[in-house]
Write a protein that binds this DNA or RNA. Structure first.
Lengths: 200, 200
DNA sequence: CCTACCGATCGGTAGG
DNA sequence: CCTACCGATCGGTAGG
């Protein structure tokens, strides 16, 4: 029942959340005022609090929505049959490329502004990120053991994999020359061929 | 003459600049208060202004010191004889890796907080960065033409090259497992082998 | 959803 | 290098 009644309010809440993601990305969390945010959805600052709990809650929602999306994708992948380590890593890189292309605002806030999270949320977020990186490192180590992946130091490779896609931030401003599909295939080829063992 | 007399003051100024880099990195430019900064060098906020012009000037100095270092390195490289395109790109990647390892605070501030620069400095900074990327893209294009570099879309490759090293940010917190030398060689091998044309 | 307003904190200045 | 202080802005609340 409540679904129909609150349709309008739900729309407003989403508008606030997505304006917050854009502003937090552009000006940072502490550089964004509630009056900026209110203005960008056409109401007064005080009126925001009919839809949201606090500025901190907006940041929390963005960070954990992204963390959840990454974890869900990795869980699916680990359960999927018929993919070897290299195939799994390619899928992870491709997922990240698409996340950065399609949801830049949220991803950048989760990447750059998470430090403004309050405890215990900050610790929780950092722990999830550590675990995520360890799971990818484990896939790498297995691929190295099996011989499908070059015998490089796995931690350094994970760091490189996960940060390489951050260049997409620049692409968003100057999307003149290159299509999303071209960018995706360039990055995936470059990274995946970098880790593939061509000796094998 | 003034060199000797102002030795102490010069030391204080440097202490403020380096504390500012660390705080701007940790808490962001707008998240850092002048009272935080003053406290971290052991004086009152008002006393800072005997040594610096403004908060904005501290940010400006950090951003352009890093931009200047990158431009100077690239200028040397372009003038150096006997390096082919692939060798030049390896040198660029290695330079970036070392910059991120040795001067993390400043590099991260220049990378993440430059948006808080005021005009005309912001525009100036963005222009320098655009030009820097174009010069690297030109080296890549030439390498592709010569056959030493894989025929990938050059703009996407530049984005990937320049962002891949950002993983070093994580390494700084957990420098337990891996040495700086190992990290450097992992990243350089991964990236350089990713762009090398193994067909040739 | 608004007006009116809270105490806290901001970057920076005056004056010594 | 300090105390004292400026006007502006911060996130958020009261009350309707």
């Amino acid at each position: 029942m409540p679904r129909k009644v609150r349709t309008r309010e739900g729309g407003r809440r989403e508008a606030i959340a997505s304006a917050a993601a854009r502003l937090f990305r552009e000006k940072g969390f502490s550089g964004t005022g509630m009056r900026d945010l209110a203005g960008s959805v056409g109401i007064e600052a005080a009126s925001l609090y009919n839809h949201i709990d606090s500025k901190a809650a907006l940041l929390r929602d963005i960070c954990f929505r992204i963390a959840d999306a990454c974890n869900a994708h990795l869980r699916e992948l680990e359960a999927a049959p018929g993919l070897d380590s290299l195939g799994q890593l390619e899928a992870i890189v491709r997922f990240h490329v698409r996340l950065w292309i399609e949801r830049l605002d949220e991803v950048l806030v989760a990447t750059n502004e998470f430090r403004s999270l309050e405890e215990p949320w900050l610790e929780h977020f950092l722990q999830e990120r550590r675990m995520y990186m360890r799971r990818i490192e484990a896939i790498l180590s297995q691929g190295i053991q099996e011989g499908s992946i070059r015998p490089l130091e796995p931690y350094g490779v994970v760091l490189t994999l996960m940060s390489a896609v951050r260049g997409i931030e620049f692409w968003h401003r100057s999307r003149k020359h290159v299509s999303a599909a071209s960018l995706e295939s360039t990055m995936v080829e470059l990274i995946v061929d970098g880790i593939r063992n061509s000796q094998g």
